[in-house]
């Protein structure tokens, strides 16, 4: 029984050691404000340069960044045009300065990361955190790769087609990073 008395603490210690760095880890929220307002039409695209290295929490954990558990684009989208619009967010994996929607879509490495968000004529919609997280689909992986990489990229908000016009107010990119030492 004396041996047994040490068995459980020993097993616990072994499990802790096997866990290694996963013990010293956590999930941290980082956010990056986007320029506001972003006023967009097909021929006059406005971009948001994102350099996460300027975000303190990201700086603190960049060396220990293992994964991303959540990402969202928040803000208030307003359709200022005369037709309904399906808003999407595109990303280029570096800082770029593209002036129109067509150039964004064919840019090297450009990928649609978020959307679509449907806006009726004159409609204004504050995108909630849960809703926005659900609008990341296939494009989530490339964005995660950028955040795990150099943290520098460019976001563009585009409509699906037609002569749309919309704007994004108080836009912010929010991510939850998994960091562990």
């Amino acid at each position: 029984m004396r041996n047994l008395r040490w068995t459980i603490p020993t097993l616990a210690l072994a499990a802790l050691l096997a866990g290694g760095c996963i013990l010293v880890s956590g999930q941290f929220i980082i956010s990056k404000d986007l320029p506001t307002p972003l006023v967009i039409s097909p021929g006059a695209v406005v971009h948001a340069d994102v350099d996460l290295n300027a975000v303190t929490v990201y700086q603190d954990h960049k060396a220990d960044l293992k994964d991303l558990s959540d990402v969202a684009i928040l803000g208030e989208f307003t359709n200022t045009g005369s037709v309904p619009v399906d808003v999407s967010i595109w990303m280029t994996p570096a800082l770029t300065d593209l002036g129109d929607a067509a150039s964004v879509i064919i840019a090297p490495g450009a990928v649609k990361v978020w959307g679509p968000l449907r806006l009726g004529v004159g409609e204004s919609k504050k995108v909630g955190w849960d809703q926005s997280a659900g609008l990341f689909k296939a494009g989530k992986a490339p964005l995660i790769a950028q955040i795990k990489g150099d943290g520098v990229f460019t976001l563009y908000a585009l409509g699906a087609s037609g002569s749309y016009a919309f704007q994004l107010d108080h836009g912010v990119l929010v991510a939850v990073i998994d960091a562990g030492k």
Partner: peptide
């Protein structure tokens, strides 16, 4: 975030 409140 900014001036708007969000819930996750």
């Amino acid at each position: 975030f900014g001036t708007l409140a969000y819930t996750r």
